[in-house]
Simulated scan of single mutants.
Amino acid sequence: MIVLAAMVLLTDQVSKFWALSALSDGERITVIPQLIHFRLLLNPGAAFSIGEGATWVFTLTAAAAVVGILYVARRLRSTAWTIVLGALLGGAASHLLDRLFRPPGFAQGHVVDFIDYGLFVGNVADIALTGGCALLLLLSVRGVPLEGVAGKEHPSA
Rank of each mutant, 00 (worst) to 15 (best):
W56N: 12
L137K: 12
H110S: 14
W18I: 06
G90K: 00
A128N: 06
R99C: 03
V84I: 09
S24V: 08
R75C: 09
A65Q: 07
F120W: 15
R77N: 08
H110E: 08
L85D: 06
V124H: 03
A73Y: 03
F120D: 01
V72Y: 13
R142D: 14
R39G: 09
A6Q: 05
W18K: 07
V66Y: 04
E52S: 15
D126H: 05
I50P: 08
H37A: 04
R77Y: 06
S140M: 11
S24E: 13
G91I: 01
A65R: 04
R102D: 09
R39N: 12
D126Y: 04
R142M: 14
L60K: 08
S49G: 12
I69P: 02
F48I: 11
G86L: 03
A80C: 08
F58R: 03
L42N: 00
F106H: 00
I32T: 10
A62I: 06
L139W: 08
S140A: 14
I83Y: 04
V8S: 01
T79S: 15
S15A: 10
G122S: 11
D126M: 05
L70Y: 14
L23T: 10
I127S: 11
T82E: 00
A125D: 00
A128Q: 02
A5Q: 01
L41G: 03
D113T: 00
G90V: 02
S24F: 07
V121H: 05
F17K: 07
L9D: 02
D98K: 01
P103Y: 06
V67C: 10
G132I: 03
Q13N: 12
A6G: 14
L35I: 14
T61D: 11
S94I: 03
I127G: 04
I36C: 10
G122C: 10
S49F: 06
D116H: 09
L41W: 08
L119G: 15
I36T: 10
A92S: 13
K16L: 09
S21T: 15
G68Q: 12
R75P: 02
Y71R: 15
A47K: 03
V121G: 02
A107P: 04
A64Q: 14
S21Y: 11
A87G: 12
F106Y: 02
F58M: 01
S94G: 15
A47G: 01
H110G: 06
G86R: 00
A73R: 07
V72T: 10
V121E: 03
V8K: 00
S94E: 03
F38G: 03
L20I: 08
I29C: 11
A134P: 11
